[in-house]
Computed example of a mutant assay.
Amino acid sequence: MLSSPLESDVSDTRLLIGKRKMSSQGSPLSCAEDIDAHTRKRPRNLKQAHFSTPMKRTVCSECQMSYMQHMKSDRQLHDKYHRRAIEGIELGPTNSLLCNLIERHQLKSGVDGKIVEVNSESSKEISVAEEFLDIVNNILSAPQDNRDWSSDPNRGKVFMFVIRNKAVGICSTERIKEGKWMVYDTGELVPKQKIPLAIGISRIYVSHKYRRMGIGLRLLFAVQQHSIYGLTLTKYQIGWSQPSEFGGKLALSFNGVKHKSGKMLIPIYEER
């Protein structure tokens, strides 16, 4: 019996579908995915590469400047900065700071020096003082200091010790009203006690080359005499902001007091 054209087409279609199913289920090479799976290579174990580099920075133990030793420009920059930090800042013979003389001194070594006061109306003098203080903060790892003195001498002053046209010591101050006693050995504050103070030592520093010559004490004596016009301060009207190891020893010798417990105290204040 002959089938109709429609039945023949349906039968052929069913046969074709069946063949495709068998082909997809039974043959491993029936599709592109299977071929790719057999031909794809397994990835190798990957390892992270580590490159050695000469870009390591060096920190100078004396001036605390960070620089790259292998770079000539960095070495030259460090050498210049290092000289200023260790030997002082060259002022030059015509610098106006040299005209602001308030005291002359001859040091134990026989070297002549003088103390000058920074004029808050001179941008050049302020620039020199700020450069010196930036070096001091870097060496002491100290935060930015209060620089009210640069706009109003009634709020603070800056004194420098000069030897042969070179600023080798600096002391910046601010006007304050009160402070507290600090135990020198432990850094602890004496509780429930406030002391009247007039001047705070914000920063005081003497270049390494000129230490142990009495420059720090002479700067403090200048603070006593020249901070407030017509008034000589007592040692105990002067407080300390955050004395470093060097500043702590200087504070102890200048206005440290012995408590009845036997502990040594120094007057400090909180810097604004």
Rank of each mutant, 00 (worst) to 15 (best):
M68H: 12
A142S: 06
V168R: 07
K166L: 07
K108I: 12
R40N: 08
S73R: 09
D36P: 03
Q224H: 04
R212M: 08
R164G: 06
S120F: 02
V158C: 14
N255W: 03
I228Y: 11
L6E: 06
V10K: 00
G200S: 07
S73A: 15
V158I: 10
K258I: 08
S8K: 01
I228D: 10
S261L: 03
R164E: 12
D185H: 11
P243R: 00
C60N: 09
M55F: 15
G239E: 12
L250Y: 01
V116C: 07
I163G: 02
R14N: 06
E245F: 14
Q224M: 15
A198M: 11
R44E: 00
R175M: 11
L46H: 06
D12L: 00
C63F: 11
Q48M: 13
S253A: 06
A85I: 13
E103G: 08
C171H: 04
R218C: 01
R40Y: 06
L16N: 00
H208G: 10
L252E: 10
R203V: 00
S120W: 05
I139K: 02
L250T: 04
I126W: 03
I35F: 07
K19W: 03
I228Q: 11
G262R: 00
W240V: 14
D145Y: 01
V118L: 00
E270A: 08
S172I: 03
W240D: 07
Y269K: 02
C60A: 00
E87Q: 14
S241M: 09
Y81N: 05
G247T: 06
P196G: 10
V168Q: 03
Y236I: 09
K192S: 12
S109H: 09
F132P: 02
H208K: 13
N95C: 15
D9Q: 06
S202A: 12
P153R: 10
W240S: 05
F132Q: 02
P143G: 04
S120T: 09
V158T: 12
C99W: 15
L231H: 08
E33N: 05
H259P: 07
S141R: 01
W149T: 07
I195G: 06
G18F: 01
G248Y: 11
S141Y: 08
I176V: 14
I201T: 04
Q242H: 12
F221K: 03
G169Y: 05
G262T: 04
R75K: 13
L219H: 02
S261N: 06
